[in-house]
Computed example of a mutant assay.
Amino acid sequence: MTVITDNIAEAYQDFYTGAETEWRMLGAKAKAQNLAEVCKGIHPKKILEVGAGDGSILHYLNEMGFAESLYALEISESGVSLIEKRKLSRLKAVSSFDGYAIPYEDNAFDLVILAHVLEHVEHERVLIRELKRVAKYLVIEVPLDYRFGVDRRMKHFLDYGHINMYTPTLIRFLLQSEGLEIVADKTTLTSIETTKFCEFVVRKIPKSLMKTLKITLEYRVKQLLGNLLGKNKKEQFGNAYTVLTKKSTQSLEIF
């Protein structure tokens, strides 16, 4: 049985301490909106979020009335504690798990959510197969970290726990090779509001008119070029990719 490596498990045990709450909530709002948008055609009633962190995405899904019942799994005990403290009205259960084995029966859920988790996972296919086992639909969002020369910034990404890199093409290949069919997808840019918060509050870069204008202009230019030049260009510029999949009728035996 695959289990999460001890040093990785230890790194996440106290990861969610209640600090940086505003930062997490700001990002979670956009993630919840993305998830809801790609899932708008399926109307799930029972949802499981795996790697739910501090529950910030669940908070917004709960507010949106996205499903009748919400469930959560998280490897970090500090995350589980923060989720419990939220007292979400639609949350039925939250518990810790070993990072791979989902403690629910086959087809227990309408939808499983995996948002900004897969980039942290050592054995991606093992986890994907478990998620596929417990739900018909699986929605994943990953950051689009990959750029040319990314290997020269390894420390930066490892500091965030990102051990996998994705492009929309690569994540689609991974999911389809695991017998999942793409239903809907969306590529997004980091919002101007979030970028400003990251630069001026998180990174503590001195705020200036020129820096603020540069952030706004860069966003507008990328947005315009993506709209004009189509999906490939939009995916090239994107910062996050959200994809809804369902179990395929085609069986792929790759191993």
Rank of each mutant, 00 (worst) to 15 (best):
T169R: 11
L144N: 06
Y166K: 03
G161S: 14
D151K: 15
I182C: 08
T167H: 08
Y146N: 07
K132R: 15
G161R: 13
L127V: 07
P143R: 01
F148K: 13
R133F: 06
G149W: 08
E178Q: 12
E130I: 04
L189I: 09
T169W: 10
H123Y: 10
A135V: 11
T169L: 13
V139A: 07
L127G: 02
L174P: 01
T188W: 06
P168R: 01
G149F: 09
L144T: 05
L127N: 01
E122V: 06
P168Q: 06
D145K: 12
L189D: 01
M165H: 11
I140D: 00
L175K: 03
I128M: 06
L174F: 11
Y160S: 09
M165F: 13
D151F: 13
Q176P: 01
G179D: 05
F173Y: 13
V142N: 04
M154N: 10
H156C: 07
V150T: 10
F157D: 10
E124Y: 07
E122N: 09
K132Q: 15
V134H: 09
L170Y: 06
G161W: 09
A135S: 13
V142K: 03
A184N: 15
P143E: 02
D159L: 07
R153Y: 14
L175T: 02
S191L: 05
L174M: 14
D151S: 14
L175H: 01
E141M: 05
Y166T: 08
L158K: 07
L144W: 04
K132D: 11
V121W: 01
L138D: 04
N164L: 14
V183S: 03
D151I: 10
P168F: 08
V121P: 02
E141R: 02
Y146V: 12
I182F: 01
L180R: 07
Q176M: 10
L189A: 02
R172V: 11
E124V: 11
F173S: 12
R152V: 12
E141W: 00
P143V: 04
K136V: 14
T187Q: 03
E178K: 09
R133T: 05
T190Q: 07
T169E: 15
L158E: 12
N164D: 10
V139M: 05
R172D: 15
V150I: 13
E122I: 08
A184I: 14
F173L: 13
R172K: 15
L127C: 04
E181M: 02
V183Y: 06
I163R: 02
T167C: 06
A184H: 15
R133C: 05
G179S: 03
H156W: 15
L144D: 02
R172Y: 04
R152G: 14
L175S: 01
M154I: 10
V142S: 02
E181N: 01
